[in-house]
Simulated scan of single mutants.
Amino acid sequence: MVLLEHPLHGAGGREAGPAAAGPGARGRGLVPGLSLSRSLSQQQQPRLGRRDFRLVSSLATTRKTAGRGWSIRALGHLAGARPRVGPARAVPSCMLGCAAAAAGTSSPPRCRSRALFRLTAVSDPECSGFWLKQSAYREQPTVRFRYEVLFVATLGPGPGSLLAWSTFPAFNRLQEDRLRVPLLSTREEDKNQDGKMDLLHFKLELPLQPTEHVVGVQLILLFSYHLYRMSTFVMQSMAFLQFFSPVPESQLSMNGDLKLNQRQLLHHCGLDTRYNVSVVNGTSPFASDYDLTNIIAAYWDRNVTTVFSDPNPLWMTGRATDAPFIINATIRYPVEVILYPLKTA
């Protein structure tokens, strides 16, 4: 509950009515009995202290935005005391409502000295911002490709009809005759020359036998992801690219964003390195640690991740017998809206 005390009488010991507030004061969210700052300077300023007049003027200027979702109700009248203003407190404009409109009357309350008002909330989702517990800011993350890749190409419906390769030697040793080493080329680009990379150009060329045809691909690319503006947040993240088609392909092109996904607010200060661990345990000798189902399940257990969003895949057919299968991917690093908790006293 917020208490405001304000003198309602005007010059000559009479209360300031609608006329003192000027035409059009009703319906603008003004407290009945409050004059506009212009009228106050002419009629009521001599009766108010400098601090009182400053608050009254501030309240009067909220007439265009006030009155939605809140109402002001008079609790009673106090007499025989010097007019003063209560504790200085910032009051959102959405909390100032028209008491006369809320009460269904057209005339302000009658009093000889001053009135004590209580701001009472009503249920209105459009009136917000009074008890904020979180806030947001915009920041472009510092993202760098770690040159760590795990790639699986599906050749047919059979369980062993696949080719695989990664930058992890333990994974490659497990593939035996299914291992096929592709040709990779990558390039990160800083388009606006601000010192932060804006996108990654990734190209993979997989050599195939004339009888081999790719009908699906699964690709994991690993990144370092840093935020610095509020807290220093350091994470190792991934982009997962996947596509399948009943028709054999010669080339797959994708173009999308590496988007931040928050299920938890980030800290507003300090160093946060809880997710600065590799997404893939590249030193493990166990095949289960390289199973894509287990990798993705463990990754999504995190509260902060990145996802490859809006990939817009373009599937091209008609591969020549001696031509490789090609993946072209452009991954952009956009500006993000970061959510964080407000600092409490």
Rank of each mutant, 00 (worst) to 15 (best):
M1N: 08
V2G: 05
E5T: 14
G10Q: 04
G12Y: 10
R14Y: 13
R14T: 11
E15R: 10
A16H: 04
G22T: 03
P23F: 13
P23K: 02
P23H: 08
G27C: 10
V31M: 08
P32E: 00
G33S: 03
L36W: 10
S41L: 03
L55Q: 10
V56M: 11
T65Y: 11
G67W: 01
G69A: 06
W70E: 01
S71E: 12
R73M: 05
A74E: 06
A74M: 12
R84A: 13
R89T: 09
V91N: 04
S93P: 13
G97C: 03
C98E: 08
A101K: 02
A102L: 03
A103P: 05
A103Q: 11
R118Y: 11
L119N: 03
T120E: 12
S123I: 07
D124L: 10
P141L: 08
T142A: 13
Y147N: 15
E148A: 14
F151P: 01
A153R: 03
A153K: 04
T154M: 12
T154W: 02
G156N: 05
P159Y: 10
L162A: 09
L163T: 01
W165Y: 14
F171L: 11
L174F: 07
E176H: 10
R178F: 01
R178I: 04
R178T: 04
P182F: 01
T186P: 01
E188D: 07
K191F: 05
N192W: 07
D194Y: 11
G195C: 07
G195W: 10
L199S: 14
H201D: 15
H201G: 14
F202A: 12
E205F: 14
L206G: 05
P207C: 08
L208F: 08
Q209D: 13
Q209E: 13
E212S: 07
G216S: 12
F223V: 00
S224T: 09
Y225M: 03
L227K: 01
S231I: 00
Q236C: 07
Q236W: 09
S237H: 08
A239T: 03
F243R: 05
P246S: 08
E249S: 11
Q251M: 14
Q262E: 15
R263Y: 10
L265W: 05
H268P: 08
H268T: 07
G270E: 09
G270C: 07
V280Y: 09
G282L: 06
S284K: 06
Y290R: 00
Y290T: 01
W300R: 15
W300A: 10
R302H: 10
V307K: 10
F308I: 01
S309M: 07
S309H: 12
P311W: 00
L314D: 13
D322V: 11
I327C: 06
I331P: 06
I338E: 04
K343H: 08
T344I: 13
